[in-house]
Write a protein that binds this DNA or RNA. Structure first.
Lengths: 180, 180
DNA sequence: AATAACTGAGTCAGCTCTGTCTCATTTCCG
DNA sequence: CGGAAATGAGACAGAGCTGACTCAGTTATT
């Protein structure tokens, strides 16, 4: 694969993210335009729309996994790990909104496993009463989405729009929800 | 409008709900089939797909409002009202999954107003610390969705699958989330 | 500089969905 | 019963998207 083609592939993935985030049914041509390429070129890398979507999912799963290991999910105190993970996730959301939304159904097993680890450890530490990691994951994902859609000046985020404000709110809300 | 045509209209709305819940992009013909009618007949009632969708939204808004007044939102203790409202909402979800999902953006002002009333009253009663009804609504809707997707035998719902088990879980979780 | 890889632009057939129209037939309602 | 309304079946044009293909021109690599 020529360095040339590599760049094109990346461009396409980026363009697909931004375009499909705005309109999940956008035609391939709009993605090609956003990437500054011809539609035919997109079809050369990704023969089918389905293939392109799968590539997006895989890409997000990789970054997800990266965020999990940067959060030191298995070593750090679980509440801290959750907080760090959340911060990374919000960053991930700005550049990969569509992909994340798409992974709702098809999170990679590796990601699920690590994610569940956070919640079992939270339970073991007595920070939450909820038992099943699956349920915790569901609530987590839902709240991440809601917090993410909060406008920057929302009172829930506190006075200053500090970078960790969203993560704070999320952790607080999630622990409250899973303690009931 | 002949009694005949009235029935057809209802059939179409019902069919649209069930078909679109499974596939939001399903073609008009599939809706017509599900309604036991010809595609042309559907187009006679609802000239455009857009019009049909709007009708679905309106229908859900009506039922939503009905649920709110049956819950005695303005008189009953707010926690009780919330519980009753939640029960109705879960019922509504089984028959109007698609419409409810669609109303995420376009809830009627009347519904929003009544819904906000619940949360301001909850705050006044000291049951939640969250202030902004908008934020409460967001979290509420998100959790309703997650609880609704829980399988009937989920441990979170308790031993017996009593009718109010889901509402119990939701109220518990929501109050926890909005207290953090 | 030569070769191989990549790309742009255009064309093409095929498919699906939409919305409209017609006309014969069935169904309601007074 | 008889007229009016509603329906089914089918055809129709139009639009949009997809995926494949060609070929001339550009770009990277050795």
């Amino acid at each position: 694969m020529r360095a040339d083609a590599e760049r094109s592939t990346m461009r396409i993935l980026e363009a697909a993210e931004t375009v499909l985030a705005a309109d999940p049914n956008a035609p391939m041509e709009r993605i090609a335009d956003a990437a500054g390429l011809a539609r035919a070129t997109v079809h050369r890398r990704f023969p089918t729309r389905k293939v392109l979507l799968e590539a997006l999912v895989e890409q997000v799963n990789e970054r997800y996994l990266l965020a999990l290991q940067r959060a030191r999910v298995d070593a750090a105190p679980p509440a801290v790990a959750l907080h760090r993970l959340t911060e990374s996730l919000f960053e991930l959301k700005v550049s990969h909104r569509f992909g994340i939304q798409l992974t709702g159904d098809v999170l990679s097993p590796a990601v699920i496993e690590r994610l569940d680890l956070v919640f079992t450890r939270l339970h073991a530490a007595g920070e939450i009463t909820a038992v099943r990691p699956q349920w915790c994951r569901q609530v987590f994902r839902a709240l991440v989405h809601e917090v993410d859609e909060l406008p920057p000046d929302a009172p829930e985020l506190g006075p200053a729009d500090s970078p960790g404000a969203r993560a704070d709110l999320l952790v607080r809300t999630l622990l409250g929800a899973l303690n009931a």
